[in-house]
Amino acid sequence: MDLTNQIVELLRKTATQLPEDITIGLQEAYQKETNSTGKEILNNILTNLEKAKSESKPICQDTGIPIFYIKRPKNITEEELTRDIIKATNIATEQVPLRPNAVDCISGENKGNVPIIHFKESNEPNKLMIKLILKGGGSENISGIYKLPNQKLNAHRNLQGVKKCIIDSIFQAQGKGCPPYIVGVAVGSCIEEVAHNSKQQLLRKIDDKNITPILEILEKKTLNELNKLNIGPLGLGGNSTCLGVKITSSISHPASYFVGISISCWALRKGTLKLSEEVKS
């Protein structure tokens, strides 16, 4: 089975069209925005989305790092999928086109685009799920990890402390990462876990409900407070600072309590490719 063409299309669609939940979030923000500059910026953003879709061009010139999250059945190997994804990424870089964003940290050589791939084995036979985020650099630069307790924020190891970390990260970021932002948060015991889980929270629909009621309340409350900061679209003022806050938590260690915060710009480019029957052949 060769999935190259389907993955090229997934990359193309994700780079050139925003998913419906984010588009609706931006349209609602436009309706609600009271700051005239903020409203005009949101109008430009919406016009840009229409043009990008109709002309099939990347919404933003920073087409990001392609990050794949894969649930694979046992009959498809990681090797096969990795091969197809790398091939598809190279083709999409030429054809969509995506901006060549992979720069060797030591030599400075540009290597086109190099995807990051996370695998999970699924118990369901013959069902393959590929999720993709094209993660822009501007909002990645304002993402980070907090360690609680934090003296400066007077933040402790509780949900109030978590909320303070989120508010601090958006306040420090101001307009540098292209608000209105979508914020993914994970609480846990080690740094790679909270980094990974917080990024994956960005895959949730912005209008969904958290399965943990206390986190659902925290998400709503935090979003409401973030939108009081008046940072606004592109940091030029207004009440549309964030479109959504998504929080997950796991187990902490008696000595460690980390809060990972992954921030996306308004152009949260995420896509899904689901295959079932095809996988059998």
Binding site: I45, N48, K51, A52, C60, Q61, L234
Partner: peptide
């Protein structure tokens, strides 16, 4: 200031 992310709007 230009609008971050509005890549096609400017390209045109």
């Amino acid at each position: 200031s230009a609008v971050g992310g509005a890549g096609v709007l400017y390209a045109n």
